[in-house]
Computed example of a mutant assay.
Amino acid sequence: MMFRILRHQEPRPDQARTVRFEGRDHGGEISLFLVDNEPGQGPDLHVHPYSETWAVRKGEAEFTVGDAKTRAFPGDILVVAANIPHRFENVGTGRLEVVCIHASDTIVQEFV
């Protein structure tokens, strides 16, 4: 097959709205999360053995990367190197939508 398409499906009320995609399951070389968080939500501090790229689509996020903190807004793109502890949190008043691109065909994540 030359291509695959995964159609969006609305989550049930008891399901998280964040979508996890691992490329290896679909013939792809990257993995990603389509994050959809409420204010105050975000992952705990963690690391990956590869770089991660974030593209903020909606809302306001505070990113912690190593000892540094920065705010990001719609249209901003951030990149963190491999093995650097990082996290983000929705610090806005509305929903946060971020695309988290993992430079790996599978997601490898260790919480610290």
Rank of each mutant, 00 (worst) to 15 (best):
G23S: 03
G23P: 08
R24E: 14
R24W: 11
D25P: 04
H26R: 10
G27S: 09
G28A: 15
E29T: 13
E29R: 14
I30A: 10
I30M: 11
I30V: 14
S31T: 03
S31L: 04
S31R: 03
S31W: 03
S31C: 07
S31I: 00
S31H: 01
S31F: 00
L32W: 02
L32H: 08
L32Q: 10
L32K: 10
F33N: 12
L34P: 02
L34Q: 10
V35F: 04
V35A: 10
D36N: 15
N37L: 11
N37P: 06
E38V: 08
E38K: 14
P39E: 08
Q41R: 12
Q41D: 15
G42A: 03
G42S: 10
G42C: 01
L45N: 14
L45E: 15
L45G: 12
L45Q: 13
L45V: 14
H46D: 03
V47C: 12
V47S: 12
H48C: 05
H48T: 05
P49A: 09
P49W: 00
P49F: 01
P49G: 00
Y50K: 02
Y50C: 07
Y50T: 07
Y50E: 04
Y50M: 02
Y50Q: 05
S51R: 11
E52L: 01
E52G: 09
T53N: 04
W54D: 10
A55Y: 11
V56F: 02
V56K: 05
V56G: 02
R57H: 15
R57Q: 15
K58N: 09
K58E: 15
K58V: 12
G59L: 06
G59M: 03
E60M: 11
A61N: 09
A61K: 01
A61T: 04
A61L: 00
E62Q: 15
E62P: 03
F63C: 00
F63P: 02
F63S: 07
T64G: 14
T64H: 09
V65G: 11
V65P: 04
